Lab assay of single mutants.
Amino acid sequence: MPVRRGHVAPQNTFLDTIIRKFEGQSRKFIIANARVENCAVIYCNDGFCELCGYSRAEVMQRPCTCDFLHGPRTQRRAAAQIAQALLGAEERKVEIAFYRKDGSCFLCLVDVVPVKNEDGAVIMFILNFEVVMEKDMVGSPAHDTNHRGPPTSWLAPGRAKTFRLKLPALLALTARESSVRSGGAGGAGAPGAVVVDVDLTPAAPSSESLALDEVTAMDNHVAGLGPAEERRALVGPGSPPRSAPGQLPSPRAHSLNPDASGSSCSLARTRSRESCASVRRASSADDIEAMRAGVLPPPPRHASTGAMHPLRSGLLNSTSDSDLVRYRTISKIPQITLNFVDLKGDPFLASPTSDREIIAPKIKERTHNVTEKVTQVLSLGADVLPEYKLQAPRIHRWTILHYSPFKAVWDWLILLLVIYTAVFTPYSAAFLLKETEEGPPATECGYACQPLAVVDLIVDIMFIVDILINFRTTYVNANEEVVSHPGRIAVHYFKGWFLIDMVAAIPFDLLI
């Protein structure tokens, strides 16, 4: 008679799926529990143990900040960024110097990925580790590398530091407007667009060049630039800015003055950032001319202004700041037409079709709590990747769950009947059967004279019903998954307890 339990259901295979997918890609990662103190490590794979030199037993239950890997060259700011990422709910990448158990130093890129439950609360953290440099290539500990984003994938490793954006290309926007319009339909740009040429040739750093990471940081200074100062900065030398009595002219307006920039070969870094931020506020060169004239017309309804409409929906549905990093990277690809469009465009503009998908598509409701890094690593669709929660398995109709209350009560009843059979069957065979043979035949009273025979008949009927119930009862397979398919249940029961239950259900007393 089957006594099969499996009270692990309803099970959740999400954690096993993450481990299996990460292991298949030869990654070095740990999984931490966000619900406990210090976000203790609950799993670390073999790749991480080989990377740091510690065994799994030495890593388990330690804080996922990996303070046991810190050393003299470990930056405090990087460690603080990892700790801050564990307090938030967004994906974050941090470069930090770690030390192995043998004392060797290596520069590592740590990717902190939160995993949320159905309520939107962070319950786990996945920390992925990628070695960037070994100890002989690690720089000085005073050099802070965590304020910069990861290198873009479309640049060669040897040319990542030679990417320079020439400031004269930004200063000569109005001069290039006529050349853009003359391109017409034969050019790649839309009317009114501004073409910015980027020099990728390796050259020595000069005062006129600005690194790509500095251009990325310009967006942080746009908020500090007032509207009046932006307007004066875009007017140009024809209309000098008016300053109040006793007030000095704005240095932001002076930063885009061609006369002032041409007199000296070098520009201050602050002026460069502010000038680029001011130019980015204009949607095209037409807006710059309109600002000089004193009238700013409404933005025209053409394809170039609607190019950012799908980007707005993608940004609203993005799951991490990696989408913004990807957008900034692609927006700086050289030799393309940049349409400086305000994100607050007309909502009635139709979304044009684009061959290049900048932001990841909208994630469906079932995966809105899973970050983009987890979705990318697992390579699963929205119909396959579940949320991290207890999910009731989908069972067929008329199927009994093996952990249901009805099955528990039924098993206790069958257990009592088995005990009765084990006690009274030998007793009936030894004593009652002998008395029946010696006594007179009682054929007239039937079952009324033999109450134990009636009980034995009921017990046999219950055993037959138990066999039928076992054909529709779920079970737990070797992978700790609840199986509810009727065919698989029948095959599993035939290979197991079916023969024993059938022999126990045969009414031998009635056959004798």
Rank of each mutant, 00 (worst) to 15 (best):
114 P>Y: 01
152 T>K: 06
73 R>M: 06
359 I>Y: 11
324 L>P: 12
278 S>T: 07
182 S>N: 07
382 A>N: 06
103 G>Y: 05
346 D>Y: 05
269 R>S: 11
385 L>V: 07
64 C>V: 09
106 F>A: 01
289 E>T: 08
333 I>R: 15
86 L>S: 01
344 K>T: 07
126 I>Q: 05
241 P>Q: 12
107 L>K: 13
7 H>P: 14
171 L>N: 15
109 L>I: 08
369 N>T: 12
379 S>M: 14
47 G>W: 01
347 P>W: 03
367 T>A: 13
167 L>S: 10
334 P>A: 03
291 M>Q: 11
104 S>M: 06
49 C>Y: 01
302 H>C: 11
374 V>H: 15
73 R>G: 11
199 D>A: 04
106 F>R: 01
168 P>L: 03
159 R>E: 06
163 F>N: 14
28 K>R: 09
294 G>Q: 13
71 G>T: 01
204 A>V: 03
145 T>Y: 15
207 S>I: 15
87 L>N: 13
19 I>A: 04
28 K>F: 09
314 G>W: 05
175 A>Y: 03
241 P>N: 15
134 E>Y: 06
133 M>I: 12
153 S>D: 11
165 L>I: 06
154 W>A: 14
38 N>S: 15
21 K>Y: 11
141 P>S: 06
122 V>Y: 03
155 L>R: 12
173 L>D: 12
53 G>T: 01
297 P>K: 03
44 C>S: 04
274 E>L: 14
2 P>T: 06
61 Q>F: 10
384 V>L: 05
249 P>C: 10
375 T>W: 03
133 M>T: 14
246 G>P: 12
268 A>F: 07
121 A>H: 10
5 R>T: 09
133 M>W: 15
3 V>C: 08
55 S>R: 06
176 R>V: 03
176 R>T: 06
129 F>M: 05
206 S>P: 15
287 D>F: 07
129 F>H: 04
311 L>G: 11
266 S>M: 14
49 C>M: 06
96 I>P: 01
362 K>C: 12
222 V>A: 15
154 W>K: 15
180 V>M: 07
185 A>F: 06
270 T>F: 14
198 V>D: 03
354 S>K: 04
209 S>H: 15
320 S>I: 14
158 G>M: 12
152 T>R: 14
292 R>W: 07
135 K>I: 06
52 C>P: 01
183 G>A: 08
260 A>S: 07
45 N>Y: 01
63 P>G: 08
130 E>P: 01
298 P>D: 11
258 P>Y: 09
206 S>I: 12
71 G>L: 01
340 F>C: 07
116 K>Q: 11
11 Q>I: 09
287 D>R: 04
115 V>P: 01
115 V>H: 13
258 P>S: 13
289 E>R: 08
147 H>I: 01
254 H>F: 15
356 R>T: 10
64 C>A: 15
67 D>R: 05
172 A>R: 13
344 K>S: 05
180 V>T: 14
347 P>T: 14
259 D>S: 08
298 P>H: 03
370 V>G: 04
277 A>E: 12
374 V>A: 06
60 M>I: 15
300 P>M: 14
289 E>V: 12
317 N>K: 03
202 P>Q: 06
47 G>V: 01
376 Q>L: 03
12 N>A: 15
17 T>N: 15
338 L>E: 12
14 F>R: 11
130 E>G: 11
283 S>M: 04
134 E>V: 06
359 I>S: 11
249 P>A: 08
386 P>N: 04
40 A>H: 05
83 A>C: 01
363 I>R: 14
245 P>A: 12
166 K>A: 06
118 E>W: 15
321 D>H: 06
194 V>C: 07
102 D>K: 01
346 D>T: 05
18 I>V: 11
113 V>L: 14
256 L>I: 09
289 E>D: 07
382 A>I: 06
184 G>L: 07
168 P>Y: 01
256 L>G: 07
105 C>A: 12
212 L>G: 07
70 H>Q: 07
183 G>T: 09
50 E>R: 13
75 Q>H: 07
14 F>Q: 12
116 K>C: 10
230 E>P: 06
271 R>G: 11
279 V>A: 14
366 R>Q: 06
139 G>Y: 06
30 I>R: 01
299 P>R: 08
327 Y>P: 14
59 V>W: 01
349 L>E: 11
45 N>I: 01
217 A>I: 10
263 S>G: 11
8 V>F: 10
13 T>W: 14
111 D>M: 05
123 I>M: 05
91 E>M: 09
51 L>H: 01
236 G>S: 08
153 S>Q: 06
261 S>R: 10
333 I>F: 03
4 R>P: 15
148 R>G: 09
258 P>G: 14
374 V>I: 13
83 A>G: 07
373 K>V: 12
322 S>C: 07
8 V>Y: 13
354 S>P: 14
226 G>E: 06
300 P>C: 07
110 V>S: 01
297 P>Y: 07
175 A>V: 01
354 S>W: 15
145 T>V: 15
70 H>T: 07
288 I>V: 07
